[in-house]
Design a protein around this nucleic acid. Structure first.
Lengths: 135, 135
DNA sequence: CATACACTTGCGTTATGGCGTCAGTATACA
DNA sequence: TGTATACTGACGCCATAACGCAAGTGTATG
């Protein structure tokens, strides 16, 4: 659920919000998601709702096996999947709850970052010169 | 707020969910966000909470002017910003509410896509052979 | 009409990343 | 111990895109 916007009281608080926003907008994660093949692979894993091996995923989405292996690695390194090696097969799993939570947090962070309607006082963003930009 | 997962009753419903997921995972939008410079520019605009010109944004983030102009164009084309030309200046604006809504929708879509805990019946994903993959 | 301003676009360079192939590693199983 | 299985990694090719520079376009202003 969305948090209600509260104007940052201190530069420190504003800086925390910036940091939170930046963390949630992790380029590695977004780059991983931005590839259509990888998005397809992720959706496969979400739909299956259980850990899948590289072979299974490759059969799912008719992408070259080694590419699937690489994509799964990328998704896992980006924190979008978990992986567990058992014997000679690696089981990749998509945690739908965690992913959904991440994007809800991001939504909250976006709303926290922006000032209220009509708020014109310095929001402590430190990015723009308040004199220059609010003339 | 999160919707409660309900197993798709028909292949048609499952297909609608897939389509929703794919739409929310628009590669163009994610690619636009995945660039650190562009994320920075977007956060500038969110923090300012009002339309900014290209010149203002360029002064904000110490990136080459023509690059800022290009990045803003990319963000706008990806639907992350709105732009309005008035005279010789273009005003770019980030709609925090709309962005937050988008990511909450995505979170919902992710949760809708995945089967309930322990659900092993065919979820109509059509991506995996139920026989082969659930052995 | 000339000039300043606010972008936009084209160009060449560089960097990143996807893609397939193929060889290598690690594990199970007969 | 040999062979099949399941992946991983290294190479090279190619497409895309970021980046900075500089020239071009369109709009106000004197």
């Amino acid at each position: 659920m969305a948090s209600v916007y509260k104007h940052p009281k201190t530069p420190k608080q504003a800086s925390r919000r910036r940091a939170r926003f930046d963390r949630l907008l992790e380029p590695e994660m977004l780059k991983a998601l931005a590839e259509p093949s990888r998005a397809q692979i992720l959706s496969c894993l979400l739909k299956c709702g259980r850990p899948c091996s590289v072979t299974e995923v490759a059969e799912c989405c008719s992408i070259d096996f080694s590419m699937v292996a690489r994509h799964l690695g990328t998704l896992a390194r980006a924190g979008l999947l978990t992986s567990e090696k058992k014997g000679r097969t690696v089981w990749y799993n998509a945690d739908a709850r965690a992913l959904a939570l991440h994007f809800r947090d991001l939504a909250d962070a976006i709303e926290e970052l922006t000032p209220q309607d009509g708020c014109i006082e310095d929001n402590g963003c430190g990015c723009c010169d308040p004199e220059g930009i609010r003339s």
